[in-house]
Computed example of a mutant assay.
Amino acid sequence: MNATFANDLFRQSIQDYHLTDDVDTPVNNPYSTNDIAFLLYQKNWIDTVQWHLEDIIRSPTIRPDELVGVKRRIDLSNQDRTDTVEQMDGWFYEQYRGIVPKPGARLNSETPAWLLDRMSILQLKIYHFREQVERPSVTDEHRQKAQQKLAVLLEQETDLAQCFDELLEDIRNGNRYMKVYRQMKMYNDPTLNPVLYSEAK
């Protein structure tokens, strides 16, 4: 498991989504459910659908009822995203639970899965800025600006990949260790969100 493996899966998911480019296309995850590849593919698919929902909701012609429906889909997607990241971190925790941290080992504030979350979204940015660079109907100025931003994103891709691989290496060597903190989001829980539990009375 390394950054190259993860980024390749993210790109595969993005390419698969764009075969239909439809937010209602059901995910067809080609990997076994007990494989980290399954979670990586699933995570990026969620991100990719949500990326396009965020585009849809900004349409100036969207009807109010449609807007509410899309906003609720985005809220559910955010919960799915968080749940999937936590499953990924559970996988990493199991992989490394037998490693005894060295004296002086440092706790890393960002877990491997939350770093992968950033890498997944970065692959979406790269894909869509590359689309803008290759878009035939735009001006040269538009294309140049998109190319400049794409260059920055590609630099970030290299940097994040290095950070991810170094983090896993440090954990394996006992120089850093991870903890899994659940997000404990309240707004989707009918027993914790005051609006929801007040309306349930």
Results as ranks from 00 to 15, higher is better:
A3M: 11
R11G: 06
S13P: 00
S13M: 05
I14F: 05
I14W: 04
D16I: 07
L19N: 00
L19D: 00
T20W: 00
D21G: 06
V23P: 01
P26G: 02
P30E: 03
T33P: 07
A37E: 14
L39M: 14
Y41K: 07
K43S: 06
N44L: 07
Q50N: 12
H52Y: 02
H52D: 01
L53G: 09
E54V: 07
D55H: 08
I57L: 05
S59P: 05
R63Q: 15
D65L: 08
V68T: 12
V68E: 14
K71M: 14
R72L: 07
R72T: 00
R73K: 01
I74V: 05
I74F: 03
S77W: 00
Q79A: 01
D80R: 14
D80Y: 13
R81I: 00
D83N: 04
D83Q: 07
D83W: 07
E86K: 00
Q87E: 12
D89L: 05
Y93G: 12
Y93N: 12
Y93S: 14
Y96K: 10
Y96N: 09
R97W: 11
R97N: 13
V100C: 06
V100K: 14
P101V: 09
K102G: 02
K102S: 11
P103L: 02
G104N: 04
A105W: 12
A105T: 09
R106D: 06
S109T: 13
T111V: 10
L116M: 08
D117N: 13
R118P: 01
I121F: 08
I121G: 11
L122F: 03
L122T: 09
Q123A: 05
Q123M: 11
K125S: 11
K125Y: 08
Y127W: 12
H128R: 09
F129M: 10
R130W: 09
E134N: 15
R135P: 04
P136C: 05
P136R: 02
S137V: 11
V138A: 09
T139E: 01
D140K: 11
D140P: 04
E141G: 12
E141I: 12
R143K: 12
K145M: 15
K145Q: 15
K145V: 11
A146T: 03
Q147A: 15
Q148D: 10
L153Y: 04
L154D: 03
L154W: 00
T158R: 01
D159C: 12
L160A: 08
L160S: 05
A161N: 03
A161I: 04
C163P: 01
D165C: 02
L168S: 00
L168E: 06
D170F: 01
I171K: 13
R172H: 15
N173R: 11
N175Y: 10
R176S: 08
Y177A: 11
Y177E: 04
Y177S: 08
V180N: 07
Y181T: 14
Y181D: 14
R182N: 04
R182P: 09
R182Q: 08
K185R: 15
M186N: 10
N188A: 14
N188C: 14
T191G: 03
T191H: 10
L192C: 02
L192V: 06
P194A: 02
L196R: 10
E199H: 15
K201D: 12
